[in-house]
Amino acid sequence: ALPGRKTPRDCSLDLSELITPTNLDDLDAPFDAEEIWNAVKRLPAQKAPGPDGYNAEFLRACWPIVRQDFVDVFQRLYEMRDRGFCSLNQALLTLFPKRADARGLGDFRPISLIHLVAKIFAKVLSLRLAPKLCSLVSTCQNAFIP
Rank of each mutant, 00 (worst) to 15 (best):
D26E: 09
P21E: 04
L15Q: 03
A91C: 11
K119R: 14
D10R: 14
D72M: 10
K6Q: 07
K6M: 09
G53L: 01
E17D: 07
C134W: 03
P49K: 06
R109M: 02
L105V: 14
P51N: 10
D10P: 05
N55Q: 01
S135D: 13
A100S: 15
K119L: 08
A91I: 04
K123S: 11
K132G: 01
D107T: 03
F121T: 12
I19D: 01
C134H: 11
R99T: 06
A56M: 06
L59E: 04
A45T: 09
I120D: 10
A45W: 00
A29T: 08
K119I: 09
Q75Y: 04
S12Q: 13
P51W: 13
A143V: 10
G4P: 06
A130Y: 11
L133R: 08
I145G: 00
K123C: 08
I111A: 04
S138K: 12
S126W: 00
P64Y: 07
R42N: 12
P3S: 14
L24H: 03
V40Q: 03
C86A: 15
R83I: 03
A56F: 09
S112A: 15
P8Q: 02
P51K: 06
Q90D: 00
R76C: 11
N142D: 15
S87Y: 00
A1M: 08
I120H: 07
R67F: 03
I120T: 12
I111E: 01
S87A: 12
A143R: 14
R81S: 14
V66D: 13
G104H: 12
L105T: 08
I114T: 14
